[in-house]
Amino acid sequence: MHSKAFALFLKDFRSELRTRYAVNSLAMFILVAISVILFSIGQEKIPQSLTGGLFWVVIFFSAMSGLARAFVSEEERGTTLTLQLIASPSTIFTGKLLFNLILVFLMNIVIAVLYSALFDEFVIRSFYLFVLTFVLSNFGLAISSTIIAAIISKAGSKGTLYPVLSFPILLPLILTSVQLTSNCMVGTSFAESKVDLAVIVCYDVIMLTASYMLFDFIWKD
């Protein structure tokens, strides 16, 4: 199954290079969101906890602007049937998840780098804890975004439904990630953050299992 899913990922990657369905909207959103925060803060000093929160706000809304494309672009182009005829549902989900994972990691690395460069208050004291939080949260974000994208791709008002449906599902992940990012900025140790890390690991495992179980039903009319 992995080679088929990887082939599907490569197809999506090549397609994205040609059509720029997701990358353009993501890049523009990141740029605009960070600029708005910079302009609204001006010369003010903001507390560290707020900086960490705003970091995840940018990530959440950027994800909302680009990650739905994995399935929505297939539906809009009318290629969903083609996909159903060449691969099993589990292969399709794995391929799309792989694509969203790469996209989420690239997007969030860009956000983190820009954030570090532009906000003096965004100083990470527990670097390894931040890396672990970043990786686990990105996995959760990609898994949830992929399954929600599959659900909303069949709906009429895709654009509005995606953030509305994503918000309650992503809320536990975002809240925990905000808390862990604050911990990283304060310099908390791994041991003190292990409960929050465990919450994210559980979230990732539950979402991944539920997604594979549900995808068959979502994918068939």
Binding site: K4, A7, K11, R14, T19, T79, L81, T82, I86
Partner: peptide, 18 residues
């Protein structure tokens, strides 16, 4: 609908791989 951003040859190659 086939993938219109790809050529016929690329479509067939992708389908075989998938």
């Amino acid at each position: 609908v086939l993938y219109e951003e790809f050529s016929a040859w690329e479509n067939l190659e992708f389908f075989a791989r998938i």
